[in-house]
Amino acid sequence: MSTHIIAQSLLSGILVGALYGIAALGLSLVFGVLKVLNIAHGELIMLGGYASFWAFNKAEVDPYVSLVIVVPLLFLVGTILHFGLFAHIVRANEEQRIKNSLLIGFGLTLIGQTLAIRYFEADERRIATEYSTDAWEFIGLRLPLVRASGLVIGIVLVILLQLFMHRTYIGKAIRATAEDWQTASLSGINVRLTYLITFALGSALAGLAGMLVSVQYSISPNIGLTWTLKALIVVVLAGLGSMPGTFLAGVLLGLAETSSALAFGSQYREMVGLVLFVIILSIRSQGLFGEQNA
């Protein structure tokens, strides 16, 4: 095995991992703040992907430009979902809340997937722009343009989110609510509104991830579970509460996948992530909220 192949697959691991990281950001945010696990997160990614796809296909809107529609659209979808469903379960205690959110997310998955098959058709789709196959070459390594864009967008996104969470009042309110919603409301923070904004923001992030999926890979109505699982693995790897940590864990997962594909063959690529996940999960059996109070 030449060093060239190793370097190339590590590079593609980093690139795919950046996308995993972006996909996980919204899930981690919502899970960390609302203590609600939205397993329909993958369906939101799918929806964002389709929104970009149709914008490109029907109106020839460049996928990156389509973000100005897709992100607000998913923000709106998140608002509606929270308002109609998740807002009703956040009053329960943590354990009950997570369990109910899992169940509701599961119901949403069923509905979303079926509707997608019906209205978007079951075919795999991808956005094929003029620059889709473009790539940079340097020291013999190939860097596909659209995949590199994911890494750049991911890094910019993490910096923006970090600024938002630490420099703005809403961001601080979100962090305060994540730690202790009761004390937050005693500080005059409107906890319900904070929950709503957080959930909608998480959905908007899923929309952005969806656009990248439809440009870099392909979308179909049943990709939801796959992406939810990827995002979950990343969240478990990273723990809750840190945006840069989540993104890095995504990159790590991408690297783990490609290097195991290199070592054991590509059919084990998907399994490595899942096995890693179960191992880390059982090490951290006290749960993901534990380390926050440390």
Binding site: Y169, K172, A173, R175, E179, Q182, T183, A184, N293
Partner: peptide, 14 residues
């Protein structure tokens, strides 16, 4: 009712 993950200043600002 202090937020232990936030800084002292951030707590006061909140």
């Amino acid at each position: 009712g202090t937020f232990s993950t936030l800084s002292v200043l951030e707590n006061l600002e909140l």
